[in-house]
Design a protein around this nucleic acid. Structure first.
Length: 456
RNA sequence: UCCUCAGUAGCUCAACGGUAGAGCAUUCGGCUGUUAACCGAAGGGUUGUAGGUUCGAAUCCUACCUGAGGAGCCA
């Protein structure tokens, strides 16, 4: 029997005898609330096991999975044959009664009374991602299909929760979302790491690598603001924690200092972790993430100065010297004795951006802060207090060989009612990788953009 | 940009100088409780590309292509 005739034979399913009302269409995730009821699921075939006159199709609908039980003697011949012949990821709907069943994953099962084929995946080109193992290259080439797999599905759901929690936290703590542009006219700190875009031929613009400068203007207008969007870095970086396109949330606060940044960053992290643990127990299980690693993430986080961090690293055998930035190995060393993120502040001015406010007591230090996640997940937050004095800003622009004309609007912020202000940026993908215990950030974003990968 | 590693069936891998194999996927057959089901059978290959060494190359050498991991840099 060909797939065509199967399809045509099942387009008008025979309803069970009697005057039964049509079954209610529900998401699989709601199944536990409909035990004993006749319902319909709409989805795709995840896997099928068959044993002669009984078949067990597992349907997934995006909200969950459900094992169905189709018994030959209880079904019209064509419906049973259709189910028996389903191939992986064929789309179909199935009607039946939900029953608690300890033998099934998830604890429930559907006794099938009817089913309808939407499209059968043909045997000439079967679904490429099988239930067995695959390599990274193959999976990345099939990212658009890989998202249907259990682990990827779980990781993207955690990503959703991280983003939602960030917004919930900031929204309920007085922050206003004020978006910053993605096309920007000039580099924030040099052009080497920026993607250049041809803007109607006559002007060069770049894809943003940070909304921070605009955030500072927005903070002077709204007090507490944040921007949340994609960020682009053209560095030819090729490691498990890099993407060329990633999402970053950047809160910025007027009348705030370095201490306030540390407090907000810590509270934000604690809030998100709590929500992930509370809402995504099942997803973490699918990801084989040990939740006890996250249960410790509570305030206060250990705090240390850059000075102390360098001393600690040297005592642990790092080659680092005062004045240098931490490498990945250093970040791992620094956090290995702690079960929660480490906050490091007051970095040497020369390794930080031009806009950092210097320490009053020690002007060679910038009031910058990084939050470094445990378990070798690295820097998840970077921020600090910004320069609010015009004369000092001008001095820094000169030292960094930045054209003053391009920063006129930014200088205005220091002319018209300047106030101390501070903020930070947090990378969503690194945060999600940490929550999920993933090896690589590429699985934390639906369509990762990397050095040698821009498709699909 | 640099260093290291890898490209063999649709997928994951084996064969390491002498006739290219297995599991999964697909098709056919069997099985009324399967859990990456199982059992039997079938089809499926220009061994990344181009040269070279050799009687003989998937295997050794050179270059290139593609990808992965790491360094630097970053969230």
């Amino acid at each position: 029997m060909s797939s065509d005739s199967l399809a045509s034979e099942t387009t008008a399913p025979t309803l069970p005898a009697g005057n039964e009302a049509p079954a209610k269409i529900i998401p699989i995730s709601d199944a536990h609330r409909h035990v004993g009821e006749r319902v319909e699921f709409q989805g795709w075939l995840y896997n099928l096991r068959k044993s002669g006159k009984i078949v067990f199709p597992i349907i997934r609908d995006g909200s969950g999975m459900m094992q169905c039980v189709a018994v030959k003697s209880n079904l019209p011949e064509d419906v049973f044959e259709m189910l028996k012949g389903l191939t992986q990821e064929s789309s179909f709907t199935v009607t039946g009664t939900i029953r608690a069943e300890s033998r099934a994953h998830g604890g429930y099962e559907l006794d099938v009374t009817d089913a309808k084929l939407i499209q059968r995946v043909s045997e000439e080109s079967p679904y490429p991602i099988t239930p067995k193992e695959h390599g990274v290259d193959f999976l990345m080439d099939h990212r658009h299909l890989w998202l249907r797999s259990r682990r990827q599905h779980a990781a993207i759901r955690v990503r959703h929760q991280v983003i939602k929690s960030i917004r919930d936290y900031l929204d309920s703590n007085g922050f206003t979302l004020v978006d910053t542009p993605i096309f920007t006219p000039a580099a924030c700190e040099g052009t080497t790491t920026l993607f250049e875009v041809d803007y109607f031929g006559d002007e060069k613009v770049y894809l943003t690598q940070s909304g921070q400068l605009y955030n500072e203007a927005n903070a002077m207008a709204f007090g507490k603001v944040y921007c949340f969007g994609p960020t682009f870095r053209a560095e030819k970086s090729k490691t498990r924690r890099h993407l060329t396109e990633f999402w970053m949330v950047e809160p910025e606060m007027a009348y705030a200092d370095l201490e306030e940044v540390k407090r907000v960053a810590e509270a934000l992290v604690v809030y998100i972790v709590g929500r992930v643990l509370e809402q995504h127990e099942e997803d973490l299980k699918v990801l084989e993430r040990d939740p006890s690693k996250l249960e410790n993430i509570k305030a206060p986080f250990p705090r240390m100065s850059y000075d102390d961090a360098v001393k600690i690293l040297q005592s642990k055998g790092s080659e680092i010297r005062w004045g240098g930035d931490f490498g990945n190995a250093d970040e791992t060393l620094l956090t290995q004795d702690f079960d929660r993120p480490v906050i490091v502040d007051r970095y040497p001015t020369q390794i930080k951006g031009f806009y950092f406010q210097p320490d009053e007591q020690r002007p060679e230090l910038a009031l910058g802060v990084d939050v470094i996640a445990p378990e070798a997940y690295g820097e998840i937050i970077g921020g600090g207090q910004r320069i609010h004095d015009l004369a000092l800003l001008d001095k820094r622009l000169q030292e960094h060989h930045l054209p003053r004309e391009a920063f006129e609007w930014y200088r205005d912020l220091r002319r018209f009612g300047t106030v101390p202000h501070a903020g930070f940026g947090m990378g969503v993908e690194r945060f999600v990788a940490w929550m999920c215990g993933l090896e690589h950030v590429r699985e934390t974003i639906p369509y990762p953009r990397m050095l040698y990968r821009t498709r699909p």
